[in-house]
Design a protein around this nucleic acid. Structure first.
Lengths: 203, 203
DNA sequence: GTCTATAGATCGATAGAC
DNA sequence: GTCTATCGATCTATAGAC
């Protein structure tokens, strides 16, 4: 601790931002140390190896996601609203409020991260996937969501579009994410809800 | 040259595979040198800096893509078939036959790659995006593609889903890509084509 | 065009003082 | 819990011989 501040938490927050912007192999303990005004070795005290830090990051993502789904499961909103609410968390992410997670964050460097991180990333992906399949099916039952084809395929498509959109936003601005957001939401709305929109069909 | 082999080309091919699996900051000249049985310095002869190598890789992606779109533009297939054919090139990618490109490959480490590479990545993304918007609109006109909403939004969604699916395939196996592939194709088919499918609605 | 050799920087990580 | 100091490995890159 330094003056009542939680250094361990600050390290995780700083590492999380670096991870999203630069990838796991694109940042070092030095980046974090400089930003927090501490030394390299101080970080090693909290996270002995970089693998430890990486595992802690992914595990935190996963716990955040699970507690988020617990919260929403307790509410009485429709499946469609739950799903849109999940998409919204990605916008929070883009704005630096890291609430839950980019599930496919390590896909681009999967063979270049430590083994324990790979396992954690796979578990995170499984949890998000299972929740999304469940929510889509629930939406079909309560009539708030409509789509064609297999629910598992659709869940994977939505998750993939979100992940890809996050990357496009890095390259070409966050407007890219909003485009995908709109299109996903539109594609999941039942016909009854669509008529109330002024959706461009000729663009 | 070594015994009639084109070393420069072998370096690019090797680097391309490493880039996809490990990210730009996840491989070094040593990785390439070991695989090709040459020395570190031999690669620097062909690509003075790693930035040069990276720029050459993205530029090659882009040229491949542009010549591919030229080819398909000359044929008389429907817009839907063109688009499915583009999705197919990603499967080639997964199988190690690098025909064209993963357009969002640097999204995960955008702030951690050299400046010239960032610019090339943005140009590549712009080209793919423009082609996809054009093809979707063409499909609406010739009746081979159907979708709701803005064409630019839809193009971004399809491109994002492809990019995300490529990453999920790294994490959880190529079956993940095929799920997204099926769902994208299903979502673009006009109603007339769908009736001939035995599409599961209850899964 | 490829090699040996090496400079120079950065990285992850540890020992030990405070 | 944070510091100084430092080790050894790895990385990008260059000089110069063949």
């Amino acid at each position: 601790m330094r003056g009542g501040r939680d250094t361990r938490e600050e390290i995780l927050a700083s590492a999380e931002e670096l991870l999203l912007k630069r990838g796991f192999n694109g940042f070092s303990y030095q980046h974090i140390a400089v930003k927090l005004g501490i030394r390299n070795a101080a970080i090693h005290y909290h996270f002995t190896t970089k693998e430890d830090l990486g595992v802690a990051l992914v595990r935190r993502y996963r716990l955040r996601f699970l507690s988020w789904t617990d919260e929403t499961a307790a509410t009485q909103v429709s499946a469609f609203e739950k799903l849109v609410s999940y998409l919204q968390t990605y916008i929070d992410y883009l704005e630096g409020r890291w609430r839950i997670c980019p599930v496919g964050i390590f896909g681009a460097e999967f063979d270049a991260i430590p083994d324990l991180m790979r396992r954690e990333a796979q578990m995170l992906m499984r949890d998000v996937y299972e929740w999304m399949v469940m929510t889509l099916q629930e939406g079909r039952r309560d009539g708030s969501i409509a789509y064609e084809g297999d629910s598992r395929d659709k869940a994977m498509e939505v998750a993939a579009a979100l992940q890809g959109a996050l990357q496009f936003a890095s390259i070409a601005g966050r407007e890219r994410f909003e485009q995908v957001f709109r299109q996903i939401a539109l594609g999941l709305q039942p016909a009854s809800a669509k008529r109330s929109d002024a959706v461009s069909q000729a663009a």
